[in-house]
Each structure stands twice: as structure tokens, then as C-alpha cells.
């Protein structure tokens, strides 16, 4: 393990200043991902700034009926919160589908969305990876692609040697739920506070796969806000995986059906970011939520999906699997007479 300095500043403003002052500094919250990466050599910071006790642990009501999740609230705590369970069940279900009880006790609201990809090549410092080492190439293209992206990738198969190639997926379950809920991310940075719509927090690889999010160096998530949902809204999270527990999603679906029937849909395990299925939502706008309509909408969403060949037949199975899982999830949310 590369030696690093450890700091525990007195407040968030000081934490931000500390990180801004050191180009190779990182924030530490629950540590469930970062500590692994320190051991593996995937993360090699010079300074680790511990913010766990600096941001709020509270989950508080907002005046508009929404909920503010302090950045240091734990995944276990949020999943167990009666308000979340009752009004945002998609989030509680997503949290409980992730990791294990022990990890959820440590993982935080601020840290979970910032966990990095589980791409096996990203995690292995002996193999090229554009995300870990910009410009080195992508080992995943043509390799072990079972957990990799089918959406948000180039229309043609990427060139493994190209510096922009990256077919990694974002692994968080929580983030898929936050994307479908139109959560808002409260951020403190060197230039003060700003609010980022959750769906704009994560980015596609573009020309710089090393960047997972739009956060600038030194920007710290202080809270995530859940906007209120209309009374009578139904929501659910469905995670598909080979193993019944402690496994990342092959694909996952977060669905929200408000009383007006305007379906909101997000997908996990399919892209470099939690994938808000805006195209499917658009197709369905103003339509009756029938199985046929949903099938057509998800087909539109998947029209540009690009299977990645590789070891054990690659990941082409994800495309029909997404369609089937969306249908099953939405079917479960429809009022009895429609399903």
C-alpha cells in the first residue's frame, strides 16, 4: 500500500480546502470501496480526508414534502427509515438489494453514488484500463464483459487501444433509484454550494473515461434530496443477478408509476451511469400503460443497445433481459384491472 497522509478536519469547509490544496487528495466516508482500492493500488492518493463525521447523519423532512438525506446517513439507516419505506419504496428496495448488512452499515448516502465500477480490469493494476490509467487502453473490450455496458457505448465496437474506450458500468443500486426519483445532489465546493440534478451527476465515458461524475476536484456531496411524489404513486426496484445476495446487478430496473400513469424508468447494470430511460418515457407519454405499450417503449430505449462480445458469450443477453425485467416490474405496479 502506498503511504498516504490522513486528515480529519474540523468541518466541511476545512475538508474542502484540504482537498483543493492537494491535487492528489480524496475524501473518505464509509470506505467500503476506497479502502479496497487503496489495498489494490487502484487508488493511490497522497492525502485522505475523512469527512464521515463532518456531514450530517440526519434524514430530515423538507418543507415541500421531500426528504433530505444527510451525506453521512448510512445505507442501512435510509433503507429502514419509515418515511423512505412508505413514500419512496423504490429507494428502500434498491438499498436493501445492494451489498450485505455489514457493508450497508458502513456505506453512506454521499459515498454510495460515488463508488467506482466493478470492471475486473479496472480493479487489476496489471492490466490496461483507460479509467484507471488514462490512455492505456481498455482490457474489457473483447474480454470478460458479463457485467459491462450495452447502452451509452459507441454504435460500433470500441477499439480496445483507443484512449476513449470504456464499457464499464456503474455498480450502485441506490443510484438507479435516485435517478428515477429525480433526486437533487447538494454539493459544497471551493466556489460554494451548488445543486446538481441526480441524473446529471454521472457522465458517459465521452473522451475521458477516468471521470465518473461531473464533480470537480474538492467538491463534496453534503446531502441528497428526494422530491415529494404525488400521493398514490407506486414504485419498485427489481435487481436481477445469478446469486441471491451479495452480487452486483446483471441488470436492474427502477420504476415509478404516479397516479397519472406517466411511467418513470431507470436502468442499472447497463451503462457507465445509472440510465434514465428517457426515450421509453417519451414514447409512453400520454399513453395507456399496457404491456404492449411498455414493450414498444423499451424496444425504443434499446434500439441503439450494443452487445459486447467476449468471454462466455459476452453480454448480449442483457438486451432481452432488460426488456423482460422492465415488463415484469411495471406489471407489478399496475392497478389490478390493468395487469
Amino acid at each position: 500500500m502506498k503511504p498516504f497522509a490522513y486528515a480529519r478536519p474540523g468541518d466541511v469547509a476545512e475538508a474542502v480546502r484540504d482537498v483543493v490544496a492537494e491535487p492528489n487528495a480524496v475524501f473518505l466516508a464509509g470506505g467500503t470501496n476506497l479502502v479496497d482500492h487503496l489495498r489494490l493500488g487502484v487508488a493511490r492518493p497522497d492525502l485522505v480526508v475523512d469527512v464521515r463525521t463532518l456531514t450530517s447523519r440526519e434524514v430530515t423532512d423538507l418543507p415541500d414534502g421531500g426528504l433530505r438525506l444527510g451525506a453521512a446517513s448510512t445505507n442501512s439507516q435510509v433503507a429502514a427509515d419509515p418515511r423512505v419505506r412508505e413514500r419512496w419504496p423504490v429507494l428502500a428496495q434498491a438499498l436493501l438489494a445492494g451489498a450485505t448488512g455489514q457493508l450497508r452499515n458502513m456505506a453512506t448516502t454521499g459515498g454510495n453514488p460515488l463508488q467506482r465500477t466493478r470492471c475486473v480490469y479496472f480493479q487489476d493494476v496489471t492490466t490496461p484500463c483507460n479509467k484507471r490509467e488514462p490512455g492505456s487502453g481498455c482490457s474489457a473490450v473483447g474480454g470478460y464483459t458479463r457485467y459491462h455496458a450495452v447502452l451509452g457505448t459507441p454504435a460500433v465496437l470500441p477499439d480496445p487501444a483507443a484512449p476513449e474506450s470504456c464499457i464499464a458500468t456503474h455498480p450502485s443500486d441506490m443510484a438507479v433509484a435516485l435517478a428515477v426519483l429525480d433526486a437533487r445532489v447538494q454539493v459544497l465546493g471551493p466556489n460554494g454550494e451548488r445543486t446538481i440534478p441526480f441524473t446529471e451527476l454521472h457522465r458517459l465515458p465521452g473522451d475521458d473515461p477516468s471521470r465518473d461524475t461531473v464533480l470537480e476536484h474538492g467538491e463534496l456531496i453534503t446531502a441528497i434530496d428526494l422530491p415529494a411524489l404525488p400521493a398514490g404513486t407506486r414504485s419498485a426496484y427489481r435487481k436481477v443477478r445469478d446469486r441471491a445476495s451479495y452480487a452486483f446487478a446483471l441488470v436492474s430496473v427502477a420504476a415509478v408509476v404516479p397516479p397519472d400513469g406517466e411511467l418513470r424508468l431507470a436502468l442499472g447494470g447497463v451503462a457507465h451511469k445509472p440510465w434514465r430511460a428517457t426515450r421509453a418515457e417519451e414514447v409512453l407519454r400520454g399513453q395507456q400503460l399496457t404491456e404492449d405499450a411498455v414493450r414498444a417503449a423499451i424496444a425504443a430505449e434499446l434500439a441503439d443497445a450494443q452487445p459486447q462480445p467476449g468471454i462466455d458469450s459476452g453480454n448480449g443477453f442483457k438486451i432481452p433481459l432488460v426488456a423482460r425485467t422492465v415488463l415484469a416490474t411495471v406489471r407489478g405496479l399496475l392497478p389490478e384491472e390493468q395487469s
Binding site: V120, D124, T127, S139, Y144, R243, I311
Partner: peptide
């Protein structure tokens, strides 16, 4: 998951090599 291009098991840890739980 054997990666013949590099001659290595790609999923070489217990988070990715799944054992029945």
C-alpha cells in the same frame, strides 16, 4: 472466467467469483 488474451482469471476475487451464499 478465463481471459485467454492475457492468460489470467478475470474475476479473481470473491466479490466477482461467486460462491453460493
Amino acid at each position: 472466467a478465463w481471459d485467454p488474451r492475457i492468460g489470467q482469471v478475470a474475476n479473481h476475487d470473491l466479490a466477482e467469483y461467486h460462491i453460493t451464499v
